[in-house]
Amino acid sequence: MEFSFTGCKPCLDALPEISEIISRFGASLEVISIWNDKSRDIWLNGAKKHKELIRWTDLWDKTGKVTQLYEVKVWPTYILISPEGKIEKTWNSYRKGRILSKMEALFGNPRP
């Protein structure tokens, strides 16, 4: 899971890397973005600008309850959940290449 909001520059900067992760690890990994925007219109209009990159499940957290449930306080926040539903790793903030290197460490280095 990836927690973002459209006014978060690092969140938007991470989208190309997330797209690359989908291309490389999509058979082993499912990505879900949870957007914590104040309104549906903000979320939809922000997503439009980046829709060509977002090829994964993309949801708006209308009430903020999902964000609260996972205790997200920093954006972006990434949570790796096992197929059994167990939280395996949580990290936040975005640095170019960081998400990709974590996925390579977990899943190997498949060819793009």
Results as ranks from 00 to 15, higher is better:
Met1Lys: 09
Met1Ala: 13
Phe3Asn: 04
Thr6Asp: 01
Gly7Glu: 01
Cys8Tyr: 03
Lys9Phe: 01
Lys9Gln: 10
Pro10His: 06
Pro10Asp: 07
Leu12Ile: 14
Leu12Met: 14
Asp13Gly: 04
Ala14Ile: 00
Pro16Arg: 00
Pro16Asn: 01
Glu17Asn: 08
Glu17Cys: 08
Ile18Phe: 08
Ser19Phe: 06
Glu20His: 15
Ile22Asn: 08
Ile22Leu: 13
Arg24Glu: 13
Phe25Asp: 02
Phe25Arg: 03
Phe25Tyr: 14
Phe25Asn: 04
Gly26Lys: 11
Gly26Ile: 09
Ala27Leu: 07
Ala27Met: 07
Ala27Ile: 04
Leu29Met: 03
Leu29Val: 03
Leu29Gln: 02
Ile32Cys: 12
Ile34Met: 09
Trp35Cys: 09
Asp37Lys: 00
Lys38Glu: 14
Lys38Asp: 15
Asp41Tyr: 00
Asp41Ser: 02
Ile42Asp: 07
Trp43Gly: 00
Gly46Ser: 05
Ala47Val: 11
Lys48Leu: 10
Lys48Phe: 03
Lys48Tyr: 05
Lys49His: 06
Lys49Val: 07
Lys49Asp: 00
Lys49Gln: 06
His50Arg: 08
Lys51Ile: 13
Glu52Lys: 15
Glu52Gly: 14
Arg55Gly: 14
Trp56Ile: 00
Trp56Pro: 00
Trp56Ser: 02
Thr57His: 12
Thr57Ala: 13
Thr57Leu: 10
Leu59Gly: 03
Leu59Val: 06
Leu59Ser: 05
Asp61Pro: 05
Lys62Asn: 09
Lys62Arg: 13
Thr63Met: 07
Thr63Val: 10
Thr63Leu: 06
Val66Asp: 04
Thr67Ala: 01
Thr67Tyr: 01
Tyr70His: 06
Glu71Thr: 11
Lys73Gly: 11
Val74Met: 05
Tyr78Cys: 04
Ile79Cys: 01
Ile81Tyr: 10
Ile81Leu: 12
Ile81Pro: 02
Pro83Cys: 12
Pro83Glu: 11
Pro83Ser: 10
Thr90Gly: 05
Tyr94His: 07
Tyr94Gly: 02
Arg95Ser: 12
Arg95Asn: 12
Lys96Met: 12
Gly97Asp: 14
Arg98Leu: 11
Ile99Tyr: 03
Ile99Arg: 01
Ser101Glu: 15
Met103Pro: 01
Met103Arg: 04
Met103Tyr: 06
Met103Trp: 07
Ala105Asn: 13
Leu106Met: 15
Phe107Tyr: 14
Phe107Pro: 04
Gly108Asn: 05
Asn109Phe: 07
Pro110His: 05
Pro110Ile: 06
Pro110Arg: 05
Arg111Phe: 13
Arg111Pro: 09
Arg111Leu: 14
Pro112His: 12
